[in-house]
């Protein structure tokens, strides 16, 4: 009786694990299945590298890929130095209690809903950008990237702090006993030893930036062409999905969003496996 219960429980746990992992596969399978007709029609090349011109029967998602790339990379450019500075403060430069308080605050910031960043962005930042550059509506790559950068900074900072925390105690003791000041300890011991973990943080944050929908949707202007400057509007893959969903189920237009889904999914997978690969390789000599 007892044994039977043990066995049933173990089977149930195993079943749950299988079920939840199968979701990962099911999502990809569904995307590919739904997007397949379009991919067959024009080939992958057409889909990924052709412009978006529905009336001419061209449903390439190239502009959206470029839009996603531009916005997320630019936001990373804003967020990286900011996160670096904040993690330095928390990790060693600020006095201990101040650093702890700042860390709590940053943890809290990760809980601010994305839609609120977008909402305030529209009414606060968009007019400023419009006035400042006197071009367009203010809904552009720059605006979206700025807000997105602020949004991913807390996450990236915490990733960095986490990799600082994982540095062996002995290294820190050695530096302290040799008379290193906090900033010296940071620059010459912590940073070199943590750089692999920090790279992981950057990659994961890029994943977050690429996967975000609302900020780009609300702030980037959503124009379907390749922008020539950061003051022009652009559309991301994620925003494209949100915007086209209303169309007819069978139309090729609708099918194209599954291509976006597949691209996003594969990107996620690349990020995940890159991070896993980097975590398994050992840290090297400085």
């Amino acid at each position: 009786m007892k044994k039977c219960r043990e066995l049933v429980a173990e089977r149930a746990f195993l079943l749950s694990a299988l079920a939840s992992s199968s979701i990962t596969v099911a999502i990809l399978a569904f995307m590919v299945f739904m997007g397949l007709p379009l991919m067959r029609q024009g080939g992958l090349y057409q889909l990924l590298l052709k412009p978006w011109a529905p009336y001419q029967g061209s449903f390439g998602i190239y502009p959206m890929i470029m839009g996603t790339g531009a916005i997320s990379l630019l936001s990373l450019l804003f967020a990286f130095p900011l996160s670096l500075g904040c993690s330095f403060l928390i990790g060693s430069i600020a006095p201990k209690p101040a650093g702890r308080g700042f860390r709590r605050l940053i943890e809290l910031m990760t809980g601010i809903p994305t839609v609120i960043y977008g909402f305030v962005g529209i009414f606060l930042l968009v007019p400023i950008v419009r006035e400042l550059f006197q071009r367009g509506s203010g809904l552009c790559i720059l605006t979206a990237a700025l807000v997105l950068g602020i949004m991913i900074t807390p996450t990236m900072t915490l990733f960095f702090c986490d990799s600082f925390d994982r540095i062996p105690r002995t290294y820190l003791d050695a530096a302290d006993a040799l008379g290193a000041s906090p900033v010296q300890k940071l620059l010459y011991v912590i940073l070199p030893a943590a750089k692999n973990g920090m790279l992981n943080g950057v990659i994961l944050s890029l994943g977050r930036a690429v996967g975000d929908t609302l900020i780009a949707l609300m702030l980037a202007g959503n124009a379907v062409r390749v922008a020539e400057s950061v003051l022009e509007p652009a559309r991301t893959l994620t925003a494209h999905i949100a915007l086209v969903i209303a169309a007819d189920y069978e139309s090729p237009e609708f099918r194209s969003i599954f291509a976006c889904g597949v691209v996003l999914y594969l990107f996620t997978m690349a990020v995940t496996f890159l991070v896993r690969y980097l975590s398994f390789t050992k840290d090297t000599t400085v």
Partner: peptide
């Protein structure tokens, strides 16, 4: 600490 140096129980070379 530069004038009063210390060596620990377990060797702690930096990486």
């Amino acid at each position: 600490r530069k004038m009063v140096a210390m060596v620990f129980q377990v060797p702690n070379p930096l990486p």
